[in-house]
């Protein structure tokens, strides 16, 4: 009993006590629901009645039906393109803010980068539709300037539009971690590399880039995983060929009334994304030596 009293006053007990409401909330609203989704994916539903006998039929459908295979592959492809575009766009911006902006004004620049993100999410996507559309801003200005005769049709209602819109939505989230990582790079290390005879580019490749890799990795993960779950962007700007797996999941849960199949698709998508994210992390650890 005495040792329990002592434990109660210990750091460990106080910490656990303090975090228990937050942990409890997350367990109740995250862990339990995720487990239920997993359970649901092994059941079947016929219109409104749920059959709770264990079956892997949903997974068989999800993994063998060509339509789902195709949607999954396309979603993955779009997510990878979005992530790559976002990170390649974000790195120079983060580098610019970290290395070319006066220290006093860095916070202002970061604020500047995050403002557009607070435009209503739906409006932002819709406005891209306006910008990219047949009579949209880009086509309007290009025909007005006489650069093109016919409006460009390849910029809306396809995967390019989805990639562009999603990259726009996620780029602030990629800039922030890369910026933080770049800020942590000890400037004297770069000077040391210069002193030891490295040119500007070599200095960047051999010192700055490897040391900022943790930020790049964080940015990649932060963008890649959630992107697969967006069903609004594909719906608004993707056209029939731009739809992604999330649109199918939404459809199964809402209109098609086949929640178990939706759950199986959701879990499969999560699994695939997690697999790719882990593979990416592993490759990084294997081939890129960042700061330990």
């Amino acid at each position: 009993m005495l040792s329990f009293q002592k434990w109660r006053r210990s750091e460990s007990a106080q910490g656990l006590f303090l975090i228990s409401p937050t942990l409890g909330f997350a367990l109740l609203l995250l862990a339990v629901p995720l487990i239920m989704v997993a359970a649901l994916s092994f059941w079947t539903q016929d219109y409104l009645t749920l059959d709770r006998t264990f079956t892997t039929a949903n997974y068989v459908t999800a993994w063998t039906e060509p339509m789902y295979q195709y949607l999954m592959a396309r979603s993955l492809k779009i997510s990878i393109f979005v992530t790559a575009a976002t990170v390649f766009l974000a790195y120079p911006v983060a580098y610019f803010i970290s290395f070319h902006v006066a220290p006093k004004r860095k916070a202002m620049w970061i604020f500047l980068i995050t403002i557009p993100f607070w435009t209503s999410y739906l409006m932002r996507i819709f406005l891209w539709k306006v910008i990219l559309g047949y009579n949209g801003v880009i086509n309007g200005s290009l025909t007005g300037l006489g650069i093109i005769d016919e409006p460009l049709s390849f910029i809306l209602y396809n995967q390019n539009a989805v990639v562009l819109t999603l990259a726009h939505a996620w780029v602030p989230f990629a800039i922030l971690p890369i910026f933080v990582a770049l800020e942590r790079v000890d400037r004297s290390l770069i000077e040391a590399a210069e002193d030891l005879g490295d040119s500007g580019l070599r200095r960047f490749l051999r010192v700055t880039l490897p040391l900022s890799m943790p930020g790049v990795i964080a940015a990649t993960i932060i963008v890649f995983i959630p992107t697969i779950g967006d069903y609004v962007t594909p719906r608004l700007v993707g056209g029939p060929n731009g739809l992604m797996i999330s649109n199918m999941i939404e459809l199964q849960f809402k209109k098609a009334n086949n929640a178990p199949l939706g759950a199986a698709l959701a879990i499969s998508a999560m699994g695939i994304v997690t697999f790719f994210a882990l593979a990416f992390l592993w490759l990084n650890r294997r081939y890129v030596r960042g700061p330990s």
């Binding site: 750091e11 460990s12 007990a13 106080q14 910490g15 656990l16 303090l18 975090i19 937050t22 942990l23 997350a26 609203l29 995250l30 862990a31 629901p33 995720l34 239920m36 989704v37 649901l40 993960i221 932060i222 995983i225 959630p226 992107t227 697969i228 779950g229 967006d230 069903y231 999330s246 999941i249 939404e250 849960f253 929640a259 939706g262 759950a263 959701a266 998508a269 999560m270 994304v273």
Partner: peptide, 30 residues
Amino acid sequence: FSFFGRRSIMGFVMLPMVLPEIIIGVSLLV
């Protein structure tokens, strides 16, 4: 405080930050 399992508990609580929102929506719906 440093307590037992702090890193994994914090990781779990922070998880919704990277989880696709559709997964959270779907699971709560279920």
